Simulated scan of single mutants.
Amino acid sequence: MKAASLNEIRKDLQAADEDTVRKICIRLARYKKENTELLTYLLYEADNEQAYIENVKEDITELFTTLPKGGNTYFIKKTLRKILRFADRQIRYSGIKQTELEIRIFFCTKVKEARVPLQPGTVLYNLYQQQLKKINAIFEKLPEDLQADYEREVKVL
């Protein structure tokens, strides 16, 4: 089966009645956890972005409590990647650059607070540097007034 293009799907959804669209959304939500999470964001959290950011920060803080204490960098790396996948998924749901910037800054701050060993040349160091690159790329695209708001936080990282 060949998948229809997004344009074709959009046209057919506009032509369909409200009840059919509702059934399609519910059926779509059953098959993948990400679809359910995206629908939850769109229905309940998209109207209050700041509360959404705070919820994501709380979830990230909770995930950081699972970070292994000790010197085994393998398990630290696996846990950080798990947290980063969660953060990236939440960023994708929002699609707002300011939200992405806040979540990435918070992630890097939590990494520093957890005192993760970031010796140059390690996977952990590269992971952290990639986040800094993404933060700087987003930061440069923001308007000047928002850049002034986040400038101090970015410099601390």
Rank of each mutant, 00 (worst) to 15 (best):
E144N: 07
L124A: 01
A148T: 10
E8F: 01
R22C: 08
E54D: 12
E151G: 02
P117Q: 07
E37W: 08
F107H: 01
P143I: 03
Y31T: 11
D47P: 02
E102T: 05
K11R: 14
L6S: 00
L42E: 09
Q147E: 06
K11W: 00
V56L: 01
L39C: 03
E54A: 11
K77W: 06
A16N: 03
R81Y: 10
G95T: 03
P143F: 04
Y44H: 15
V116Q: 00
E113M: 12
E113K: 14
E58C: 07
A3Y: 08
R115K: 15
I83M: 02
K110S: 11
P68L: 04
T79I: 00
E144F: 11
G70E: 04
K97W: 08
E18R: 11
A148I: 07
Y31W: 11
D88I: 10
V21P: 02
G121A: 06
S94N: 09
A51N: 08
E49Y: 11
V56N: 00
I83E: 01
I96E: 13
D145E: 13
N136C: 09
S94M: 02
Y93R: 13
A46K: 15
Y44K: 14
Y125P: 03
E8R: 02
Q90E: 15
E153L: 15
V116H: 00
A3K: 12
D47G: 09
L101D: 01
R85E: 12
K112P: 02
A87P: 00
Q90L: 07
I24W: 03
Y31H: 13
N72R: 11
A114G: 07
V56E: 00
D145T: 11
N35L: 09
D59H: 09
I26H: 10
F86S: 03
L39N: 00
M1N: 10
Y125Q: 06
I53C: 06
T36H: 09
T20R: 09
A16T: 03
F64I: 05
L124K: 05
K97H: 11
E144P: 11
F64K: 04
E144D: 10
M1W: 09
V123Y: 10
K33D: 12
I135E: 01
E37I: 04
E18C: 03
E58N: 14
I135W: 05
R115C: 11
R30M: 12
A114I: 07
V56Y: 01
I76P: 00
K23G: 07
I53V: 15
T73G: 04
Y31Q: 12
Y74L: 13
L43Q: 09
L63N: 05
E153H: 09
A114R: 11
V56R: 01
E113N: 13
N48W: 06
F86K: 06
P143S: 05
I96Y: 12
F64W: 04
A148C: 04
A137K: 14
E54V: 07
A4N: 09
I135K: 02
Q98V: 13
A3T: 08
E54G: 02
R89T: 15
L6T: 00
L124W: 04
I53H: 03
L63F: 05
K110Y: 03
C25V: 15
K57E: 11
F75V: 04
M1A: 12
K32F: 08
E144G: 03
C108T: 14
R10K: 14
N136E: 14
K77S: 14
